[in-house]
Design a binder for these strands. Structure first.
Length: 812
RNA sequence: GCCGGAGUGGCGAAAUCGGUAGACGCAGCAGACUCAAAAUCUGCCGAGGUACACCUUGUGUGGGUUCAAGUCCCACCUCCGGCACCA
């Protein structure tokens, strides 16, 4: 067969149409006949167009999915849409289009893009979170959480983004600003809000990390561990002078309590308000409202004495009660005991205001400081602390907390940085929270058989004022399911992170109308074998998903503790070292790439440019290199596929490289996913085959053409399918068996090994593969050049690493 | 400040277990083909030297361990990510 020219457009459009016409092509059999493999990529927000980050994420996942098909697994590879969210509302306001219409047309376009790129998704399992068929189960699950006390309402200070006109979860606040509006400071507002009790699972979220330690990047686990922020300590009640009330503080260093020289309250603490009257009330108000507290980096410690005193329960000493801007209301009890001798912050504060500094801990091998110039914050030996003096810090912590418990003025306690997940959003385009407010019955859950609470379509969006649903009368006005009286619907919607916290379960049973999914169908697919997405979701999405899975397990829907066995976080796609973004105007459009070079080239380039976990820079001229590679491989295979001539003197050489390449790529897949080196190995193979071509027999040409096509298939599905069909084989190519390396054929007959003298390479000798140490040493010594270099010198020793090198150590 | 990760040619990178540093590709240079160009093919391509099948030097900096260090240890510098008054 003469070589064919490579026409990417013709080939890709042809196979694209063919694959689209076979809806069952990428479906999992789900019958247990083959071992199952679940490849999951984070579902996109339907913003309108795919960006290069999507292309990279999905190229990695698709390559893995196709490889696992070829390895004989029953692969589940679904895709869906994280379709609720604020951008749809904003776009609707701007363009006077309904958010649903905007979202659905975006989905339609992006789906075309995904298909054009050749990603092998089972579209029969497509999930779109803005459809009532999906979000009714958000509501159903929310009601189950209410029943278990895991969803609750409370008044609290919450993060409010004025730009979004809604509340944000703690996880959605970055540097005091909204995660979507990086320059908009988040305000604190006191509102009644719905919360999910993620803190009830704090301990489990920490402990179960050992189940996924092997399969998750340690950085993500560390970030989650820090976010949860478990801290062991004690809560201690200080008496208030002239009152029966107590003031509770949290400390991790109760062993230092004899050094406490004041108690400090957060400005928001109720006792602060109680103690501050007259002028102090004005100072307090100013401190509460002070926006600069949002920026902890530049916050200057500031505080004032309330005029009140508290009593240290251990030694009866009276200490002044202060209010200070650096004490956080949201952590611990919102009040601390200040031990300036043993805490950096307390030292800074007390030095500034001339509060006494009393050292009570000495270094294990040192003496107690007299008038310290800096705090000693490490563990040591307790001194000047009554009966506890002489104890080691760690021991004193335990014993002193036990005493507090025994005498009723405190107890050992564990505090978390993690707070409950605020899920209320005062926006339209989200899942309505399924409760009804009745004047007589209070908060009443919507009964299951009335789900879903459907978002009304006819809503006026202005972006101003309160939640759009609140002014929709026919939505708001309803009757109480309990007493039948007139009542009002809840008008807040759920955080969209609820939607993405369990969608991966729904994929397994996406049409289920009586449950979120059938537990029996879901069980065999979990945990997900491989989850792939950006590290930006390390805390929010991944922590919420872990939490939600545990709740579903406790409801009896799921049998695993952890949803994702293996997590892979891919790097960002950048242009000239900068993140691509609309505001910077440096977006590379995948569509243009596909038109110009084809999907195969686009995919190969994203995989070749860098290992998948690293950030990669988009460089158009490098893309052309991939196009050249695809063209060369296409031409080589088409002109050799049914070759009839050739001597065969290069057969062994060609087959050796072929089988070495099979081993290399298989190992890349199984061990580390460095597809850049896999593709480099394919290039090396092609270079070698071109060099050998004239001397290859027809049978070996065909053999190499076929295997090369199979090795290429996970990376460049279109051209591989075309070549496979050209060779007259039945497809699809990604369901063929993955080539197996024959170690005999891959084996090198002789090896060139370097000969070093004193660790410097001085020559190279050829030895038969499998030579003994002695044979290698002999070959090295026999080399003319080596002989002349060691002549007359004393050989101290000779190190031989079989197949690797010979190092002769000489003296003189 | 604390916790991670990284630093290798002009560029993206490779070296997976301490054993030939720079595979593979991009860009560049030279040549072949061509009236010419593009495409394609061949060769060269870290730096310095040179007798060009050779020598010296070289993986952020400075030390160390080792027959041997990009890789291990100590100290430091720079960049990226996360956390950051969490008591």
């Amino acid at each position: 067969m003469p070589e064919k020219p490579y026409n990417h457009e013709e080939i890709e459009l042809k196979w694209s149409a063919s694959w689209d016409a076979q809806p069952g092509l990428y479906q999992a059999a789900d019958d247990g006949a083959k071992p199952r493999y679940y490849v999951l990529e984070m579902l996109p927000y339907p913003s309108g167009r795919l960006h290069m980050g999507h292309v990279r994420n999905y190229s990695i996942g698709d390559t893995l999915a196709r490889y696992q098909w070829m390895r004989g697994f029953d692969v589940l590879h679904p895709m869906g849409w994280d379709a609720f969210g604020l951008p749809a509302e904003n776009a609707a306001i701007k363009n006077k289009r309904h958010p649903g219409e905007w979202t659905r047309s975006n989905i339609a376009h992006m789906k075309v893009q995904l298909r054009r790129l050749g990603f092998a998704y089972d579209w029969a399992r497509e999930v779109s979170t803005c459809e009532p068929e999906y979000y009714r189960w958000n509501q159903w699950l929310f009601l189950r959480m209410m029943e278990k006390g895991l969803a609750y309402r409370k008044i609290s200070l919450v993060n409010w983004c004025p730009e979004c006109a809604t509340v944000l979860a703690n996880e959605q606040v970055e540097n005091g600003c909204c995660w979507r509006h990086e320059t908009t400071p988040v305000e604190q507002r006191e509102l009644v809000q719905w919360f999910l009790r993620i803190t009830a699972y704090a301990e489990e979220l920490l402990n179960d990390m050992q189940q996924i330690e092997a399969g998750w990047p340690s950085m993500v686990l560390t970030m989650q561990r820090n976010w949860i922020g478990r801290s062991e300590g004690a809560e201690i009640d200080f008496g208030l002078c002239g009152s029966d009330e107590k003031l509770r503080v949290f400390t991790t260093r109760v062993d230092t309590i004899y050094g406490a020289t004041c108690v400090i309250l957060a400005p928001e603490h109720p006792v602060s308000k109680q103690f501050c009257t007259g002028d102090l009330a004005v100072r307090l108000k100013a401190m509460v409202d002070d926006q600069s507290r949002k920026d902890p980096e530049n916050l200057v410690k500031d505080g004032f004495f309330t005029g009140h005193y508290a009593v240290n329960p251990y030694n009866g000493e009276e200490v002044p009660v202060w209010v200070a801007n650096f004490v956080l209301w949201g952590y611990g009890t919102g009040a601390i005991m200040a031990v300036p001798a043993h805490d950096e912050r307390d030292f800074e504060f007390c030095t500034k205001y001339g509060i006494a500094i009393v050292p009570v801990i000495r270094p294990v091998d040192g003496v107690l400081a007299v008038s310290p110039t800096e705090p000693f914050t490490e563990y040591g030996v307790v001194e000047n602390s009554g009966e506890w003096s002489g104890l080691a810090s760690s021991e004193a912590r335990k014993q002193m907390a036990a005493r507090a418990k025994a005498e009723g003025f405190g107890e050992a306690s564990i505090t978390y940085r993690l707070k409950d997940w605020g899920v209320s959003r005062q926006r339209y385009w989200g899942t309505p929270i399924p409760v009804i407010h009745c004047d007589t019955c209070g908060v009443v859950p919507v009964p299951d058989d009335q789900l879903p609470v459907v978002l009304p379509a006819d809503v006026e969006l202005t972006g101003k004022g309160k939640s759009p649903l609140a002014s929709h009368e026919s939505f708001v006005n309803t009757t109480c399911p309990k007493c039948g009286a007139a009542a009002r619907r809840e008008t807040d919607t759920m955080d969209t992170f609820v939607d993405s916290s369990w969608y991966f379960f729904r994929y397994v049973d996406p049409q289920n109308e009586s449950l979120p999914f059938d537990p029996a169908r879901v069980a065999p697919w979990f945990p997900v074998d491989q989850y792939i997405g950006g590290v930006t979701h390390a805390i929010m999405h991944l922590l919420y998903s872990r939490f939600w899975s545990k709740v579903m397990r406790d409801i009896g829907l799921v049998s695993v503790d952890e949803p994702f066995k293996n997590l892979f976080t891919q790097g960002m796609v950048q242009l000239n070292g900068q993140t691509m973004s609309k505001s910077k105007g440096n977006i590379v459009d995948p569509d243009e790439m596909v038109v110009k070079y084809g999907a195969d080239t686009c995919r190969l380039f994203t995989l070749f440019a860098a290992p998948p976990e690293k950030n990669m820079d988009w460089n158009e001229s490098s893309v052309e290199g991939q196009y050249r590679f695809v063209t060369r491989i296409f031409k080589w295979v088409t002109r050799n596929a049914d070759a009839t001539d050739g001597s065969g003197e290069n057969d062994a050489r060609a087959l050796r490289k072929l089988h070495q390449t099979i081993a290399k790529i298989t190992s890349d897949f199984d061990n580390r996913w460095h597809f850049n080196t896999s593709i480099a190995a394919l290039m090396e193979l092609l270079n070698e085959l071109q060099a050998c071509e004239a001397g290859m027999s027809p049978a070996v040409r065909q053999e190499c053409a076929g295997k090369l096509t199979l090795l290429l298939a996970p990376f460049a599905p279109f051209v591989a399918e075309e070549l496979w069909a050209t060779m007259g084989h039945a497809g699809p190519v990604f369901k063929q068996g993955w080539p197996v390396c024959d170690p005999e054929l891959a084996r090198e007959e002789s090896l060139e090994i370097p000969v070093q003298i004193n660790g410097k390479v001085r020559g190279r000798v050829n030895v038969p593969n499998g030579s003994t140490k002695e044979e290698q040493e002999q070959a090295a010594r026999a080399d003319d050049k080596i002989q002349s270099l060691i002549a007359g010198k004393e050989i101290v020793k000779v190190i031989v690493v079989p197949g690797k090198l010979v190092n002769i150590v000489v003296k003189g």
